[in-house]
Nucleic acid binder design. Sequence first.
RNA 1: GUGGGUGUAGCUCAGUUGGCUAGAGCGCAGGAUUGUGGCUCCUGAGGCCGUGGGUUCAAGCCCCAUCACCCACCCCA
Length: 425
Amino acid sequence: MQFNAPRGTKDILPPASLKWQYIEKVAREVFANYNYDEIRTPIFEYTELFQRGIGEVTDIVEKEMYTFEDKGGRSLTLRPEGTASVIRSFLENKIYGQAQPTKYYYIGPMFRYERPQSGRFRQFHQLGVEAIGSNDPALDAEIISLGMRFLSNFGLEDLSLHLNSVGCKYCRPKYIEILKDYLINNRELLCNDCKARIDRNPLRVLDCKNERCQSVIDDAPKIVDHLCRECYGHFSSVQAYLDILKINYYINPKLVRGLDYYTNTAFEIKDSHLGAQDTVFGGGRYNGLAEEIGGKKIPGIGFALGIERLLLSIKAQNIEIPIEKGIDLYITVIGENAKKEAFRLNDLLRNTGFKTEMDYLDRSVRSQMKSADRMNADYTIILGEDELENDSATIRNMKTGNEKLIKLSSLINEMKQLVYGEEVV
RNA sequence: GUGGGUGUAGCUCAGUUGGCUAGAGCGCAGGAUUGUGGCUCCUGAGGCCGUGGGUUCAAGCCCCAUCACCCACCCCA
């Protein structure tokens, strides 16, 4: 019986894992540069946290959660996103007692039960950033610019920033009513899905991809025109800050995000090179979330970036991620005694800090050289019985093909000189 | 959950209207070079043709079912 990885999950093997490490390394550098610190929360939480945080009527909660009962009868859920956990932790650990704002980032797997397709998996990975404890529109702009800065490290092109405001708990319901009226009046022009959405989730009609609905949607009342004074001011201010940083954005009245906790600013970065799932990262403000999960009223803003989608984007644009390959030295051996000495030298070289390798399959010199070549070894030494007797070995530069005879006792110094260019004292 | 597509060697794929021992390129292993990689050449290993039924003298090919993967819808990272 052979097993497959469960549907929607993937093994991340080398060399892909090296790309992941590179992305994570860049992320940690950029996030640190903006003074964000890492937070690590549990992979699973009480189911109720997500039900209340994300919203009962969202797709995530209604049909996408990996929920199970533990032996103590508690209902737990594999996290479908990161923000709810971060805010739960913020409240639980009373971080609001410290100087604000609090700036966190996280990296890790998320789980949603969905049919996999391009850019969508059941276990996927997000890089997320949260700035908690301030409603300053400048932070909205900082979060967005941070995401853009991170992406700029990869040389991606044709990325578009979509921006919108979804209002607050006071002005959004009023807008929804206005939108609903409009949709009801134009009901006959909508597709069947949208007809059903009018009651269930009228905002969803706005991002329907069906061509029939487009004309109706284009003329629909825009939420921007129905924001309360405060929300409108916030939205204008975010734009002003983005302008200062010369970040281009596209005001997209159809941008409505699927999670209930969003307020005010909503944004997405899309890559036109991707398929149907083209959002590389998305996020927004969530000023109501803390209260929703039973805490104080604490504002926050953040984004989550899909690592798989970033990788797809990088691939689609033919960008090479620099991965460290190659070793400093490959030790080729002939015979048992030479192998023992090679084994000792290999250990010594590694302890000195060199990346080295040797043969473990008792293969011919020719095969060992082939291996060295495939491993991208800078140098090889050849150790046989003759060399052992003379405490010497041939060291070969694999790029030039030059060889010279050296004393084994001076191998470390020789390598230091060759690899680091250090003068031997 | 719904729809479409695809399953043949480690990988990418050929395989004529069903017909004898199922192929190529790449990769892998060994050799040409009794102890030296990349180029070239030779040789070799590796396939219950996704799985289970059915039709047929005969199935990789036809039919049914099932599973997996891909893409799209829904929705989102």
